Amino acid sequence: MDTCEITDSAIAMLDDHGTVIGWTQAAERLVGYAPEDVVGRSAALVVPPSDEAPTISAYVVRCRAHNGWSGTTTVRDRNGQLLNVSRRVSMLRGADGTVRWLVSVTDIGTLARGAATNGSMRESLLTRAPIGIVVRDRQLRCTWVNDTMESHDGIPRERRLGRRLSEAQPGFETEAIEAVMWQVLQSGTSRVLEYWPGP
């Protein structure tokens, strides 16, 4: 993990009941709550209910069942706005058996805007990567693609940007790939899928 990754991430710590017990400046910048506003309160203040975890208790149960949780989700800021974020929850065990949850959250929108406006180091590295990389939004529309991917599958950048894979390259295989992408979005669980695009 590079320094940029750490700096961009909002970090919070929860106890095993879902109460906030630690809060960073990055978390305050992300959602607008100062430590005194949120520490000692339920994480439900910033974590909206979902089908997977309708309550904070259910959220903790799910995290415990999987020894953590990662994927994309939303958080609620101080103004009630929902932000799309990438989230990783890690279990920490104390010597006395107590459990704490370290929550790392990165605003997906900020990363996308930063890459677009600042020509960030991250995008520069991705652009030069020897493997094809495509970035998609939550509707599976392409928002960014590197040159390697364009030359690998032959789909021009202008045909890809703003479109889903099934729109840029219609066919049964692309629809099957999108079905897996939807599953990942809904479950928050990563999947590895091998796919060899045609000429």
Rank of each mutant, 00 (worst) to 15 (best):
S124L: 11
P54R: 15
Q81L: 07
S86Y: 11
D96R: 13
R88A: 13
D37S: 14
A34V: 04
L92R: 11
N79M: 10
R141M: 05
T73M: 06
V99I: 15
D107K: 03
T55K: 11
S151P: 00
V39M: 11
V61F: 11
A129W: 04
R41Y: 14
G114A: 06
R100D: 06
E36H: 14
V135P: 00
D107V: 00
L125A: 10
V75E: 03
H152A: 08
L82M: 05
T73W: 01
M149T: 00
D77I: 01
N146D: 01
R87K: 12
L83A: 07
A95F: 14
D77L: 02
D107T: 01
G71M: 04
V61W: 13
D96N: 15
R128L: 09
L102N: 07
T117K: 03
S57C: 12
T74P: 00
R138L: 12
V61H: 13
T117S: 13
Y33A: 07
R93S: 11
N118Y: 04
D107S: 12
Y59L: 15
D77C: 05
A53R: 07
D96K: 13
V61K: 09
M91D: 06
R113D: 12
V89S: 03
M91Y: 07
A44P: 02
M91E: 13
A65G: 02
L45C: 12
G40W: 15
G32C: 09
A43F: 15
R128K: 04
L125P: 00
E28D: 05
W69T: 00
S120E: 01
R78T: 03
D153I: 03
D37N: 15
V105K: 04
T72M: 07
V47G: 00
D37Q: 13
V103K: 02
I108S: 06
T74H: 12
G40M: 14
E28T: 10
T106K: 11
T110Q: 07
G68M: 07
G119E: 10
V31R: 00
T98R: 14
G119P: 02
R88Y: 02
A44M: 09
A95E: 14
M121N: 06
A44Q: 12
V39S: 02
H152F: 11
T127F: 01
Q81M: 02
D77V: 04
N146C: 04
M121R: 09
G68T: 01
T74D: 04
G32V: 01
S151A: 10
S104C: 12
S50K: 09
Y33N: 05
V134K: 07
N84S: 05
Y33F: 15
R41L: 15
T117G: 07
G119H: 09
R78W: 00
V105S: 07
G154Y: 08
D96I: 10
M121Q: 09
A58F: 12
S42H: 13
R100V: 00
P48A: 07
L125S: 02
R78F: 01
C63D: 01
R100Y: 14
D37A: 11
V135Q: 06
G68F: 08
P49C: 08
R62K: 14
T73G: 05
R87M: 12
W69K: 01
E36V: 08
S50E: 13
A95Q: 14
N79V: 04
G68D: 09
V99W: 10
G119T: 06
E52R: 12
A44I: 08
I108M: 06
A53Q: 14
T143Q: 10
